[in-house]
């Protein structure tokens, strides 16, 4: 507020001083504020430590980027929620419509998936806390643990699908299986996107990179990761109840 108000104030004062009716549209009478150039690929502070920012403009930009990335991810939730809401309503309708619905036991490995993902939500939160406390070692460790748990989740899901096919429960065998595959694969693809994001920031953090949108990227990836966790819990309960 303060900086821009000051800038605007000074420009507006200048403008008022020259104010004559016929020249309203002249650029001198248009309120502008100057802004500074920031290159996002330069290090946040020019030092390797990454602790604290000497340049106030850069730190303001960082705060803005955090807000923007998190807002972007949150808005994205709206779209993803609608995708799975549509599939849920399709399943409710489809299972209620006809008598060909056959229940089946979920592969027990899904319990392992669930635990892995719950723990990963905890670890990504630890990583975020480490970031906010400028604890670089903690950040590196917890991000790496999260990535490993994410991979473990996907491997575990893969084993779940293998388990189903071994039991002869293929995609088209019964609508209950069809929906199981649709939900788990749909979630898996979204999670894979999250895993790529987490893996990307993990890799860059391990390489010691400090870029201006680093906080933003980590915070946004963590937010998305939590959402994937909540989405999975919802789907898991849904599949347990409605299989």
């Amino acid at each position: 507020m303060h900086l821009t108000q000051h800038l605007r104030g000074s420009l507006a004062n200048k403008a008022m001083g020259n104010s004559t009716p016929a020249t309203l549209e002249q650029p001198s009478l248009v309120s502008f504020s100057e802004h500074q150039r920031i290159d996002i690929d330069t290090p946040a502070d020019g030092e390797a430590s990454g602790l604290g920012n000497s340049n106030p403009a850069t730190s303001d930009f960082e705060a803005l980027a955090v807000h923007r990335y998190k807002l972007g991810v949150s808005v994205g939730f709206g779209g993803i929620i609608m995708i799975f809401a549509a599939l849920t309503s399709a399943m409710v309708v489809r299972s209620g419509l006809s008598d060909d619905w056959k229940s089946f036991g979920l592969p027990s490995v899904l319990w392992f998936s669930t635990i892995a993902l719950l723990v990963s939500s905890f670890t990504v939160e630890k990583a975020k806390r480490a970031l906010r406390n400028s604890n670089e070692n903690g950040l590196r460790t917890w991000l790496a643990v999260t990535t490993v748990l994410g991979v473990a989740f996907l491997v575990s899901q893969w084993m779940g699908w293998l388990n189903l096919t071994e039991r002869g429960l293929y995609l088209a065998a019964n609508p209950s299986h069809s929906f199981f595959y649709v939900f788990t694969v749909g979630h898996g693809l979204h999670l894979l996107g999250g895993l790529l994001a987490v893996g990307y920031v993990t890799g860059r953090v391990w390489c010691g990179h400090h870029w201006v949108t680093r906080s933003a990227a980590i915070e946004a990836a963590a937010l998305y990761w939590h959402f994937m966790d909540v989405l999975w819990l919802y789907l898991f309960v849904l599949l347990l109840v409605w299989r």
Binding site: M1, L3, T4, L7, A57, A63, L64
Partner: peptide
């Protein structure tokens, strides 16, 4: 209101 200031420090983040 750091973000509000930053809003006005925002730039075209990609070069021409």
């Amino acid at each position: 209101m750091a973000t509000e200031v930053a809003e006005h420090l925002e730039v075209h983040r990609h070069p021409e």
